[in-house]
């Protein structure tokens, strides 16, 4: 997994609540057996005016000029600013894969759905919860300021705005450690093979029907 340390990135606002993972990556793209290449289909139904299917040449499709992702000022954005309950719905990890493949490295919102939030950390993508008023203030700033960037420092758990305002955010210590160092969860867990085996033996003795 790629590390996340400090990011100084252009911000793109997506001003709607309850953005679900079906919207982030529609189901027809879930037929792929790969974990890369989803970026061109991120937000497919909002982003293009024609219907997308896997295998299409997306450069020949008709972009929706009204969708924020297609606006010239937000090209190259790495920070996604969103509203409540971002990433709700399906557990598809294709959603963070698509966002990461598009180029996003951090998402700021007042709240995230649990499974999506969790999936982000497995993919070097940092989801940050800020208070609704802070997110509101950021939406106003981004929309009023072309080229608006935020500097996100994971070690310091801080976001610095162009005017010098600093927003602190919370992140669980263990997730932070893994993301800062780009650590593979499975490798970490396998350091505890002995403990898992011991637990399993005890569990088998207590509930043998689970192992029948």
């Amino acid at each position: 997994m790629q590390k996340f340390t400090v990011l100084d990135g252009l911000v793109m606002p997506l001003d709607r609540a309850n953005v679900d993972t079906d919207a982030i990556i529609p189901k027809q793209f879930l037929k792929s057996i790969k974990r890369s290449g989803f970026g061109p289909n991120a937000f497919d139904e909002w982003r293009y005016l024609d219907h997308g299917e896997p295998g299409m040449d997306n450069s020949k499709r008709i972009p929706n000029p009204d969708f924020v992702l297609n606006q010239p000022r937000y090209q190259g954005a790495q920070v996604l600013l969103a509203r409540e309950n971002f990433g709700c719905g399906s557990s598809r990890e294709h959603a963070p894969w698509a966002l990461e493949d598009y180029g996003f490295r951090a998402i700021i919102a007042p709240s995230f759905a649990d499974i999506f939030f969790n999936n982000c950390f497995k993919n070097g993508l940092l989801p940050i919860r800020l208070a609704a008023e802070q997110v509101d203030a950021l939406f106003k700033e981004v929309e009023a300021t072309p080229g608006y960037r935020l500097k996100i420092d994971l070690e310091r758990q801080s976001i610095t705005a162009p005017d010098g305002t600093v927003y602190q955010f919370e992140v669980e210590a263990f997730r932070k450690h893994c993301l800062l160092n780009g650590l593979d969860d499975i490798g970490l867990t396998l350091q505890h093979v002995g403990e898992i085996a011991a637990y399993e033996a005890k569990h088998r003795a207590a509930q043998p029907w689970l192992f029948a």
Binding site: E93, I115, N118, D185
Partner: peptide, 8 residues
């Protein structure tokens, strides 16, 4: 769970 967790 997500696919990374499936693998885990």
């Amino acid at each position: 769970i997500g696919t990374s967790e499936v693998e885990h």
